[in-house]
């Protein structure tokens, strides 16, 4: 469905990605995990068209996205939930959602999409008329996801949805990700919360300093010795020493 091939991205002197290739199939949850600065957000932002690659190609359902502008990419159904939410703080919850559904393809089914979002996040309906800045962190993340859903994505790319949220809220956000997949959406998930995201992923890539270090099913990456040593740590070992 989404095919990223040999992608390289450079910020003036610094090469953020070198030759990254990933594949996302319809109906999957695919995770990109790795430490801070590994290039995870760069990858998502390049697929979204917010950054331009120096090399490589991005295709979605056979359509070339590499040189398309960001708002056109959204119209093809590739939508991101940006890191740190990036809501429109002085607009109401409902207005935030309406902006999400304002492009041509989404307009026809907007009423239906709004019902779906409110069905998934009843809290947002209660707070419909409140400005986005008055929401709690978890509600803001829900609004960011809802806003992205309004543009009727085929694939949703979520950049660190659990960032800065309390553990119990993180649980519910991961539950939402699974619910979205069950409703037929494809999800590309970027996370630092590695254990949790691998547990719900069909497939995963580990990025290290701008390149794919390891890939495999979520379970196999989770079981890998290198992943354990570098990112997770053995649950029993550390206290013994």
């Amino acid at each position: 469905m989404l095919n990223v091939e040999n992608l390289s991205v450079q910020y003036s002197a610094f090469k953020a990605l070198h030759g990254v290739s990933i594949k996302v199939e319809q109906g999957q949850i695919v995770s990109i995990v790795g430490a801070n600065g590994a290039g995870k957000s760069t990858l998502i932002n390049t697929v979204s068209g917010l950054l331009r690659p120096t090399e490589g190609s991005i295709t979605f359902e056979g359509v070339e996205l590499t040189t398309m502008s960001a708002h056109e990419i959204v119209r093809h159904g590739v939508v991101q939930v940006p890191e740190g939410r990036k809501l429109f703080p002085d607009m109401t919850v409902q207005e935030n959602l309406l902006v999400g559904g304002s492009h041509k393809r989404a307009r026809a089914g907007r009423g239906e999409a709004l019902t779906q979002v409110y069905d998934l996040f009843p809290k947002l309906m209660e707070r419909e008329k409140q400005s986005a800045r008055t929401l709690s962190g978890g509600e803001q993340q829900m609004l960011a996801i809802g806003r992205a859903m309004m543009s009727q994505p085929k694939i949703l790319m979520m950049d660190e949805p659990s960032l800065g949220l309390a553990p119990i809220v993180v649980q519910s956000i991961f539950a939402v990700v699974q619910e979205l997949r069950n409703r037929g959406l494809t999800v590309l998930l970027v996370e630092q919360n590695i254990r949790h995201s691998l547990q719900i992923s069909d497939y995963a890539y580990v990025l290290e300093t701008g390149a794919v270090a390891l890939e495999g099913t979520g379970a196999s990456v989770l079981a890998d010795d290198h992943t354990k040593a570098a990112y997770i740590g053995s649950p029993t070992g550390s206290e013994a020493h």
Partner: peptide
């Protein structure tokens, strides 16, 4: 709405298809 979205967060607006 698009105008205000551009004012409030241009990058997010672009990422939402504006």
């Amino acid at each position: 709405y698009r105008l205000i979205a551009v004012r409030e967060n241009e990058e997010a607006a672009e990422a939402m298809g504006v």
